[in-house]
């Protein structure tokens, strides 16, 4: 099974990745190769097998409801591309 250009574009949109025009063919080719490769799993019989999400059988540890994190905004926002008055800025979102 091979992926079409449209499928690849749709996945790129879902993943918010811009693909350059020159990139698309190579991505279609390699992604198809990968999907074909993992398709061999389809032949495996997994009836009554439980999916495994974690390597260890542990349960979630819980944290006490305490406020432990101080305000570090000004320090942390040094990494931000664009801020104003303490807000992170993005191009105007139209709802």
């Amino acid at each position: 099974m091979s992926l079409t250009k449209q499928q690849v574009q749709h996945v790129a949109t879902l993943a918010r990745l811009e693909l350059e025009d020159g990139e698309v063919d190579d991505v279609v080719k390699k992604l198809s190769r990968i999907v074909d490769f993992v398709d061999q799993l389809q032949a495996v019989s997994t009836d009554d097998v439980l999916p495994m999400a974690h390597p260890l059988h542990m349960s979630q540890r819980l944290r006490a409801d305490d406020v432990t994190e101080p305000d570090q905004r000004d320090f942390v926002q040094q990494n931000a591309p664009s801020t104003e008055k303490g807000y992170y800025l993005v191009p105007k979102v139209i709802e």
Partner: peptide, 29 residues
């Protein structure tokens, strides 16, 4: 009505300065 957030130790108090109660976990660092 918890004091801290569901997955981090940042305060949930209402009305604080913008982003002053967003710790690294809340910011998705």
């Amino acid at each position: 009505a918890t004091k801290s957030k569901i997955f981090s130790g940042a305060s949930t108090a209402y009305g604080a300065d913008p982003n002053s109660q967003a710790c690294l976990v809340d910011l998705g660092y």
